[in-house]
Design a protein around this nucleic acid. Structure first.
Length: 417
RNA sequence: GCGAGUGUAGCUCAAUGGUUAGAGCACUGGUCUGUGGCACCAGGGGCUGGGGGUUCAAUUCCCCUCACUCGCCCCA
C-alpha cells in the first residue's frame, strides 16, 4: 500500500514554500502598520455558522463544504472561508465593546470540495483582513490600500483592481427586481445556468462569461444607476480616496461577488497570467452580516487573498544556503567542534556539516552542493596546530583561524561580504 | 457534478505487437590517499499506474478503474 495525499491537497515543498513565507511576512508587516492584529480562528465550526453566514443558496454551502458529524453527533464543517469565523469570534467575545472599530487579520488553510485545477485546490491558503465597526468610506480605501501595499511589497504588480458597488438594504432589493424583470424578457438568449440563476441569484448573471449572456448583460441595467443617494455618495468617496492615493482601479459594473453577504463596495484583484482562475484577492463590504449572525448592527469590510495564486506570480525565492560548512575529519575533530557548531547556530549562523563520515573530498563536494559560502576544514593537522582552515568557496582563498577563538572570529568573518 | 487530455527510472522524455524497455539530468563510486565545480569511466535504480480482454506474443491495440493535468461550473 502506497499512500498518497488526498485529491486536491498538496505538500508545499522547500523551494516553493519560500514565496509563501515571504508573502505571509509582507502581509503581517503591512497589516500591523495599519493597526490590524492577528486573530487565530479555529479550522472548523458548527455547520450552521457557514450556512447562515455565506448564504444557504451559494455553491460553497450547497455542494463544496467538508461537513461531517463528530463523535457527539454535532454537525461540523471545515472552514471554507474566514469571515464567518471572525464575525462569530467578534460577537462571542463582544469585541464591539472594547473598541469602536475592530481591525483583525488571519491566515491559514481553507477547505472546499471543488474539482482541482490550475490555481484551485481543496485545501488552500488565504490571508484575510476584516475591519468591523465602521461604514465610513475611508475604511474601504484603507483596506484597498493595504491590499495593494502587500502585493507591491512582494512584487506582484501586473494585476488589476476592479471595484463596484452592490447597493445596500435600501436600494439593492429594488434593483434586483428591475434586473430580474429585464432578464425575464431575454431568457431565451441566456445559457442554461443563467436561466437557473434567474430564479436563485439574478445578479450573478452579470458576470457570466457565455457569449449570449454577455450580450444580454451588456445592455442590462447597471447596479450603479440604481444606487440610493447614500450608496452613491459612499462609492464616490471610495473612488476619490483611491485616486488621492494614486491606486489604479477600474469600475466593473458587472462585478458581483459570489457570497451573499456583500453590500456596497465589492472588489477583486485579477491577473491574466493564471489561466481560468483570474482572481488573486477579493472582498467587499458586509454591512449586514454581523447582525445576521446575532450581533449588534456592525458595518464591516474585508478581503481574502489567495496565497497559492499570489505565490505563483512571485519570483522563485531560493532556499537559504549555509553560511559555513564544517568539514571535520574524524571523530577527534567532531567531538570538540560540536559545541562550537551548536553555539554558532544559536547566534543565527547557518552551519552545516557532513553526516556520512566521508573523506575531505567528499565533504567538499557536499559543501559545494549545499552552496555553502565558506568551508571550515579541521583535521589532524589543524587540531595539532590549533588553527582551522577557512576556505572561501567562491574564490578558493583560504585563511587560518585560531581554534580557540572560533566562536568570536567566525561570525566576524561571515559578516564581511 | 460535467467535458477533454496524459500516465514508462527521483526529474524531463524516447521506443517497438516479437530477445535483456533506453537517453539526458540527478544519485553512488572511481580516475583524484587532506581540498568542491570540469572531464572521462563504471554502477544502482522500472510489476511501462492498476485490473481485465484480443493475440502464439501487449509498454504498444480494446474495455474498465485509479491518479494527475487542463477546461466548464464556482471561487481566493
Amino acid at each position: 500500500m502506497r499512500f498518497q495525499s488526498i485529491r486536491g491537497v498538496k505538500d508545499i515543498l522547500p523551494g516553493e514554500i519560500e514565496a509563501v513565507q515571504r508573502l505571509e511576512q509582507a502581509a503581517r508587516s503591512v497589516f500591523e502598520s495599519f493597526g490590524f492584529s492577528e486573530i487565530r480562528i479555529p479550522i472548523f465550526e458548527v455547520t450552521e455558522l457557514f450556512a447562515r453566514g455565506i448564504g444557504a443558496a451559494t455553491d460553497i454551502v450547497e455542494k463544496e463544504m467538508y461537513t461531517f458529524e463528530d463523535r457527539d453527533g454535532k454537525k461540523i464543517t471545515l472552514r471554507p472561508e474566514g469571515t464567518a469565523s471572525v464575525v462569530r469570534a467578534y460577537i462571542e467575545h463582544q469585541l464591539n465593546l472594547k473598541a469602536p472599530v475592530t481591525k483583525l487579520y488571519y491566515l491559514g488553510p481553507m477547505f472546499r470540495h471543488e474539482r482541482p485545477q490550475a490555481g484551485r485546490f481543496r485545501q488552500f491558503y488565504q490571508i484575510g483582513v476584516e475591519a468591523l465597526g465602521t461604514d465610513r468610506p475611508v475604511m474601504d480605501v484603507e483596506v484597498l490600500a493595504m491590499l495593494t501595499a502587500v502585493l507591491n511589497q512582494v512584487g506582484v504588480t501586473a494585476v488589476q483592481l476592479e471595484i463596484n458597488s452592490l447597493g445596500d438594504a435600501a436600494c439593492r432589493p429594488p434593483y434586483r427586481k428591475t434586473l430580474k424583470a429585464y432578464f425575464k424578457t431575454h431568457l431565451a438568449q441566456l445559457c442554461e445556468d443563467c436561466r437557473r440563476r434567474h430564479e436563485t441569484n439574478p445578479m450573478r448573471i452579470m458576470d457570466c462569461k457565455q457569449e449570449g449572456c454577455m450580450a444580454v448583460t451588456a445592455k442590462a441595467p447597471s447596479p450603479l444607476d440604481h444606487l440610493c443617494g447614500e450608496c452613491m455618495a459612499h462609492f464616490q468617496q471610495v473612488k476619490d480616496g483611491l485616486n488621492r492615493l494614486k491606486i489604479p482601479f477600474i469600475v466593473n459594473e458587472r462585478l458581483v461577488r459570489g457570497l451573499d453577504y456583500y453590500t456596497r463596495t465589492a472588489f477583486e484583484v485579477t491577473t491574466t497570467k493564471l489561466g481560468a482562475q483570474n482572481a488573486i484577492a477579493a472582498g467587499g463590504r458586509y454591512d449586514g452580516l454581523v447582525e445576521e449572525l446575532g450581533g449588534p448592527p456592525t458595518p464591516s469590510i474585508g478581503f481574502a487573498m489567495g496565497v497559492e495564486r499570489i505565490a505563483s506570480l512571485m519570483e522563485r525565492i531560493e532556499t537559504p544556503k549555509p553560511d559555513v560548512f564544517f568539514a571535520l575529519l574524524g571523530e577527534e575533530a567532531v567531538r570538540p567542534m560540536l559545541p562550537v557548531i551548536v553555539r554558532l547556530r544559536g547566534e543565527g549562523v547557518r552551519v552545516e556539516m557532513d553526516y556520512s563520515g566521508g573523506g575531505l573530498k567528499k565533504q567538499m563536494g557536499l559543501a559545494d552542493k549545499l552552496g555553502a559560502r565558506y568551508t571550515l576544514i579541521i583535521g589532524e593537522n589543524e587540531l595539532k596546530s590549533g588553527k582551522a582552515i577557512l576556505r572561501n568557496m567562491a574564490d578558493k582563498s583560504q585563511t587560518e583561524l585560531s581554534l580557540s577563538e572560533l566562536t568570536q572570529l567566525l561570525p566576524e568573518r561571515l559578516r564581511k561580504p
